[in-house]
Write a protein that binds this DNA or RNA. Structure first.
Lengths: 338, 338
DNA sequence: TTGTAGGCGTTATCAA
DNA sequence: TTGATAACGCCTACAA
């Protein structure tokens, strides 16, 4: 691999001049410029990015921390992020934490070791004070969470409202005994959703059923298991807030197997408007988040911080959610009667 | 950010000694070692990775090229890759090509500019001769394709056999007019699948129906559209080989809407055994590929090449596929009668 | 066992 | 307009 030195020698010029040509800088005569370009061409020269990084103290690389990429919500998010980052000339490193605090810290180390210019966290597992300590190493942007005490940009939808709207919808469909499922119980998202859920119950004078409340509902299988557990309760459940289309799909799958009618016997509501929610029979009522817009916004905000070096402060970018009513909560007959 | 020099000064030792401690090298007295560790601790020193890269000429980073991460097949593949890479201390950069030859080349440039130590291609869009020219810059491993003239490691399942098995299954279920769908028409995978499909038809003395053959069937929406187009044909179709669970799901969705019974009127077979294939009603018969094993193997083979610097030669790692028979091709009544 | 010094490939400063 | 030279931070012969 030829270096800038080889090009300079070959062209009979100095490294400086070659560097100027590489970086499109002024103060190079056209004649010499051509000369350098020809030399680069003929030698097949390409600037070495490690050297550039060292010299410029920039990596043009972002780290995106997420629980697991196979969750469609995150794969859609990171798809949008990668496209936007690529437009700005940035690379994206995938960092799957699998909800581990340790892994999360390991990946945040990328910031400290200067392997990335900035970090996007799509979930937060450590206490904020741990995350905070990495901020001196570079900008951090948080997506899909909202941590009150943190002074960084946040990109999210109002999870409390979203859960409230979803729960209200269940109640309007006549549900009286509603089960609440959440993913990671420690997460902020879960806390906000729970709060919205409770608010809707309270306003409707309905009881919260702690026995019918489950955490770690994250995928199809957990949906199936929880459905079976719900059936074992003495208390009959007629509505479920799942917080995930996959979980909802797993429950519906099991419901069909067990001869439980959805929504007649039990209404089930998902989250994220993944393609599965449209495809299931019955199709799944769900809450849509503008994933693509959110992903793009994260990258824009982060790169802006990187390139303008302004210290990140609290900044809330709240996106709108939308309830998509489908058949898992809605009997067409009801429409006719209403 | 403190550098090795600061640590050396603070500890009253030389940079060399500090470096030795950082890299766990011998020939440092315990006393000095403690001294250095203490200095590093107190200054909050972390080695700068850009400098290390430049010095060692290694990046400990891999690029994974894929069409789009939202396709579950690829998100599962890259999940396994990222986990394995992380175990070896390597980072993974996502490179979405969206089937663009240009993007593919842009990302291969990462190899030339030394931003990554190696590349995994999970699809190949350019002519091999283009790819070949990047091989002098670093190792390349190809996953999920099999290009005969290429002298690199290949990790794949035998797509021809897989398509043959799937088609034979349709034929055994009584299908006589079978439609063939494929993703990217130029791709090698499609060619092999087509070949297996044709072989099965031929052996069964069934005609190939070019009018009922479609390319660019890659997701739920294309499945829906193609279903509608199939219905417009004069020729009635009683079986479809889709090459993708998403496409199959889209077709089934549309079939239900149109009152076409699956599998009684039309059998539909998917590919990849994604969770959607189990969840649909009817559940989708599909071909499973051992995605996780394949992903891990790619990373192992690539890192082996990187670390042992042996020039890559032809190497075939063929994984077994498995037909998963479900309800989209199989009437339970047939089981009772047989 | 420890330290000195040179270089990895680039870019920025300054002088010519 | 061009070029010599000194960093960027690290590692490693080689010398002591």
């Amino acid at each position: 691999m030829p270096t800038i030195k080889d090009v300079a020698k070959y062209a009979g010029l100095s490294r400086t001049t070659v560097s100027r040509v590489i970086n499109d800088q002024p103060y190079v005569s056209d004649e010499k410029r051509q000369c350098v370009l020809k030399a680069m061409e003929e030698l097949g020269y390409v600037p070495n990015s490690s050297a550039r990084r060292l010299r410029s103290q920039k990596t043009e690389t972002l780290a995106v921390l997420l629980p697991r990429i196979t969750n469609p919500f995150f794969s859609h998010l990171i798809e949008a992020m990668e496209i936007k980052a690529s437009q700005w000339g940035y690379q994206v490193i995938i960092c799957q934490t699998h909800e581990s605090e340790q892994k999360e810290q390991d990946y945040l180390e990328l910031l400290r070791t200067k392997q990335v210019d900035g970090v996007i966290m799509t979930a937060v597992h450590n206490d904020w004070e741990v995350i905070e300590s990495y901020r001196e190493c570079g900008p951090i942007v948080v997506c899909n969470e909202n941590i009150e005490e943190a002074q960084v940009p946040f990109i999210y939808v109002n999870q409390e409202e979203a859960a409230y709207d979803a729960t209200m919808h269940l109640i309007q469909q006549g549900c009286k005994n509603i089960s609440f499922l959440s993913g990671d119980d420690d997460s902020n998202v879960s806390a906000y959703r729970r709060s919205g859920f409770l608010k809707a119950l309270q306003e409707s004078s309905l009881p919260f059923l702690p026995n019918a409340s489950y955490a770690n509902a994250i995928d199809v299988n957990s949906g199936r298991e929880i459905f079976r557990e719900l059936r074992r309760l003495n208390h009959p459940i007629d509505g479920v807030f799942t917080g995930s289309d996959e979980v909802a799909a797993g429950m519906i799958y099991e419901a069909i197997k067990e001869g439980v009618r959805v929504p007649e016997d039990m209404s089930i509501i998902g989250f994220d408007n993944q393609s599965i929610s449209m495809l299931m029979s019955p199709s799944i009522t769900t809450v849509e988040q503008p994933v693509q817009d959110m992903g793009e916004k994260c990258v824009e905000v982060l790169i802006d911080q990187i390139e303008h070096k302004h210290r990140s402060v609290r900044e809330d970018h709240v996106f709108e959610h939308e309830l998509k009513v489908r058949n898992s909560t809605f009997q067409e007959i009801a429409l006719v009667n209403s």
